[in-house]
Design a binder for these strands. Structure first.
Ligand SMILES: [Zn+2]
Ligand SMILES: [Zn+2]
Ligand SMILES: [Zn+2]
Ligand SMILES: [Zn+2]
Lengths: 126, 126
DNA sequence: TTTATTAATGCGACTTTGTTGCAAAATTAA
DNA sequence: TTAATTTTGCAACAAAGTCGCATTAATAAA
């Protein structure tokens, strides 16, 4: 299944890139001002995710946030998102924390994925 | 508002204690075999959470898992759940990892809450 | 350029997780 | 036993996300 270059995808990718934050479907929708359908946004995001173009964080609220992959480790094209994310309780911004962490696992455990979100107040809001 | 001792709460707390894992609403419901209403389970869990009896983890799937608080730090009665959780992709078990972690934050950031979930295969399933 | 192929979109219906209003039932206190 | 108030059950609701299907649009072939 070969990917095609569509307006929708270009717009969404643009927003993700220029925002520098992890964005939820809702944030994107309001940015796009109903230029495209809800389902399309979800599908585009999932496609980006499958293609390794973005990574995903899930909030305490169960909402998915997608961030453009900038400084991600990619050993043999497999992403390794070993960093925390921070969600500001005041301004709502969700950002990647740059520090790479190492995830400790007991003997016999195999890591497949990691989702780490810190909530609080960012430097602009504290 | 004073709490009352009800059957429902006792049963749910029992299951949480004896399981030793973090349980979702669905897991509890199947364990309880329709002994009580969906909404009641949710309300009991939220009550436990508010009272600091359990803590909560949110999975990549956005589902809430509740774990009985056993070895939690409680400086002046405020919980401090500075540990990761592990969710096995095969057996579905969600457990607290004992290692206490310290969460790194850039200058000017204030931590309020933390949700960290590692997915993979547990020692019994790997 | 025109046509054919098939991926992407829009729309609506649907699922799942969780919450809420309200009357009835169950705890606790008087 | 009675009164006061918390919990529960039920049903309706809300929000996030997914899916089927017909239509549109991007790519490739002719
Ligand atoms: Zn902020
Ligand atoms: Zn990130
Ligand atoms: Zn397992
Ligand atoms: Zn825990």
């Amino acid at each position: 299944m070969k990917r095609r270059r569509t307006q929708s995808q270009a717009k969404i990718l643009n927003i993700l890139k220029s925002s520098g934050s992890a964005l939820s479907h809702e944030m994107l929708q309001s940015e796009l001002e109903a230029e495209m359908d809800r389902a399309t946004i979800y599908r585009v995001l999932n496609r980006f995710y499958d293609d390794g173009l973005v990574h995903k964080v899930v909030g305490d609220d169960g909402i998915q946030y997608f961030a453009y992959c900038a400084g991600c480790d990619k050993p043999n094209n497999k992403h390794n998102h070993n960093h925390f994310h921070f969600k500001c309780l005041k301004c709502g911004n969700v950002e990647c924390l740059q520090d790479k962490i190492q995830i400790p696992l007991p003997k016999g455990y195999v890591l497949k994925d990691f989702n780490g979100l810190i909530s609080g107040y960012c430097n602009r809001c504290s």
